[in-house]
Design a protein around this nucleic acid. Structure first.
Lengths: 251, 251
DNA sequence: CGACTTGTTGATGTACATCAAGGTACGTGG
DNA sequence: CCACGTACCTTGATGTACATCAACAAGTCG
């Protein structure tokens, strides 16, 4: 289940970061870029299934996902698991553990992944030296909260079918802006068990709900290839409300 | 339903803020206090049932709750409502709308309330001038996320009875640290409809679930007075895991 | 080759929603 | 004062969306 995590030396310099080019990220000034490059202490290569953080512990590092998928989750004492959100390239991991003292959730990789490491004790330098970056950090925390809010609405008030439709569309749109989708297709490295634990339903019911979407010719999903066949219908089934994803406003 | 909101002139100076004394808040330096005093542009007196923010709009202000209760919620197009969290004294309201461009949730008061107003366009001064306060803002965002995470776990994976027990205990503990509880009693300004919309269940089922807790002599609740009769049993039913609530670590 | 993971489907049970009705307490205007 | 409306709480009857149990199929990996 939990496999070891290997730390690797530094490889991708921040000015060559492949994510920077995407227009969902604002442009950094040379000074910001220099600071971030210095802030970054290395890279972490984790294989699929690795536990990056464990509920109740703390860590000396914050990470950003450079390449790969992970998920945040919480468990109850008897093993019931709730997946809170998925971590895609560009997302923070472990911020909560650096701001508070202790992580209240766990994080596990879904694929072989590479993460950028930032030492926790230098986070304070970011706040004192680069308010624009500090604002970015808050922005990221607010966006994460926004996603969980919507997810909570789903689990609390949407039916299983609506929830499933919403989550698939939501994930697909996140992948699209990252350039991880090709047309209406994308690689989703999830099992149905992950989907079930995300949507707060049983594995069997997740399967049957997904089948309904497939039978209705709204989506396709074979091996790890996911395809949206009828996007409008999917959005309608999801009671989806489009929300603008503006890049953060300052400088 | 939605009643008007009245803005009042400034009344409570920050150095006399009744919340400051609570030990869940760190002490401010004189400089920080002076900045916050200047940042605060006035107070807002809202009566019970007032809509402070509406999903999809934005606002020129951020608020902190000075006295009173409110709740954050989202609705689906057909009216289904999910309450995301409750706002108690000391909590931020509307931060998301100031960091992002638009609020993705609504906020409504549960009681007559007084809020401190802070103009959105001066939030940036806080980041440039007072990194310690900027860090506080991020800390608050992280704490809010932590609460929603736990709530999502509840709605997704706890049974109705467990959820009810968890929420009552959680709210009671939040009130305790704010000095709003007397022994095992506290004033909860909620209706069962609010509880149902918080816990993602129907009003009828919320009533029956609550009755079960009352019949088991675990809690009492008459008029708006809530009482915990058997705290250990309530915690056990909630699958409650105690989490340290340390004040924020820096300075 | 068996052992394991992942997906699939039907049968059965149950936790929940929905519907319906009635109760108390409050207000209002007559 | 009563009649009326409204907000909130309560309880029983019925329906259904979901969970659980069980079995099997296909792929993969040692």
């Amino acid at each position: 289940m939990t496999r070891p995590v290997a730390a690797a030396g530094r490889q991708v310099p921040c000015d060559k970061c492949p994510l920077r080019g995407l227009d969902i990220f604002r442009k950094f000034s040379p000074e910001e870029l220099a600071f971030v490059s210095d802030f970054k202490s290395g890279e972490l290569a984790a294989e699929s299934g690795a536990t990056l953080f464990l509920q109740g512990t703390n860590s000396a590092h914050v990470y950003t996902m450079l390449a790969g998928w992970a998920f945040r989750y919480k468990t109850l004492a008897d093993g019931r698991r709730q997946i809170l959100n998925f971590v895609l390239p560009g997302d923070f991991v472990g911020l909560q553990g650096s701001i508070m003292n202790e992580m209240q959730h766990s994080v596990e990789t879904l694929t072989d992944s590479v993460l950028c490491m930032f030492p926790r004790d230098k986070l304070w330098n970011l706040y004192t030296g680069f308010p624009s970056l500090a604002f970015d950090v808050t922005w990221i925390a607010a966006r994460e909260e926004q996603m969980i809010d919507e997810h909570l609405l789903s689990v609390g008030r949407r039916s299983a079918l609506e929830r499933m439709a919403y989550m698939l569309l939501h994930l697909f749109e996140r992948m699209e802006v990252l350039g991880m989708a090709k047309g209406n297709k994308a690689q989703l490295p999830l099992t149905q068990q992950h989907l079930a634990d995300t949507l707060g339903m049983s594995l069997v019911h997740a399967n049957k709900t997904l089948r309904r979407l497939v039978n209705a010719k709204v989506v396709r999903w074979h091996d790890k290839t996911f395809e949206i066949v009828d996007r409008d219908k999917l959005a309608e089934m999801a009671i989806y409300e489009f929300t603008e994803r503006a890049p953060r406003p300052f400088i």
